[in-house]
Nucleic acid binder design. Structure first.
Lengths: 148, 148
DNA sequence: TTATAAAAGGACAACAAGGTCTTTATATAA
DNA sequence: TTATATAAAGACCTTGTTGTCCTTTTATAA
């Protein structure tokens, strides 16, 4: 469903949020390790997120990535949009160029339900809401839940 | 969601079904044109489908692709499985290796609903059911509905 | 003011998916 | 039995995504 780079982005953002809640600023090395993604590639992903103001960054000693007031409450939709565009929310499941309610492909109705459902998730869930689940021990960010 | 090759496969199969219902056997050239896919690539897709007995084929003059009794009533799931495997129905939306009900990622519950919904469609819809919609004029296979 | 620790940026390598082309095998019709 | 129409097969090319590496910029601490 989502591109790998988008998955990395979301996982990274949740981790950054968790760190921020503990008044920590975190860098690529630590982030990549935590989300189990290649370091250099994670750096690229974070660069993209920073360029699009999903997060902010600081260079130099003690630098790293963090949320600002304006970048707070980012929805999944916004992140997905920045990472891979939003064609995923519009595309016909059958692959037709001009599929619509008026000119439907044979899967149109059922597939639209699924696609719209995914869109609803993307709109309602935020980095905040996901992070909260993790900090409450209701979900995990990587392999295993380390309740500490 | 689905790979392009899978989309081509499903569209091709529906067209083949429609042709079969008219007691016609159809070949790559016509199929590719109808489903608006590159000819050589469509040939590869059909080769895969034939190899996995989703359809049968005949070489030589008057040859082409067609359904047999045993290959009738193919579900979308079976087609998807042959074309791209079924990881799409199991994969975690967050990208976690070990995401499960017991060890859920922060999107687990909601994403699973979507994924399971898609699985239900794939299991319940068949090449038959899709083709019927087209032949009844309720859906189209390509750009526009040509009711003839 | 210099050394160091970080992100930013650019070039490119590896791999997968999508797509093309040419040759071979096989069935049918003339 | 020969010409033709078709699918099968294999080699290859193209593009997009994922991933790496090296250099540059910038902030901080000593």
């Amino acid at each position: 469903m989502l591109a790998k780079s988008t998955e990395y982005a979301i996982r990274a953002l949740v981790f950054i949020q968790l760190q921020n809640w503990q008044d920590k600023r975190t860098g690529v090395v630590e982030i990549a390790k935590e989300i189990e993604a290649p370091e250099a590639f994670t750096a690229k992903v974070l660069q993209t997120l920073t360029k699009h103001r999903i997060i902010a960054s600081m260079k130099g000693r003690g630098g790293g990535f963090f949320f600002t007031e304006t970048s707070d409450q980012m929805t999944l939709f916004q992140v997905i949009q920045v990472m891979e565009g939003e064609s995923i929310f519009h595309k016909c499941g059958f692959g037709l160029k001009n599929c619509s309610d008026a000119n439907p492909c044979p899967m149109h109705d059922k597939y639209r339900t699924i696609r719209d459902g995914f869109f609803a998730i993307a709109q309602s869930e935020t980095i905040h809401s996901l992070s909260r689940k993790v900090s409450e021990g209701k979900a995990v960010l990587n392999r295993v839940s380390f309740l500490n």
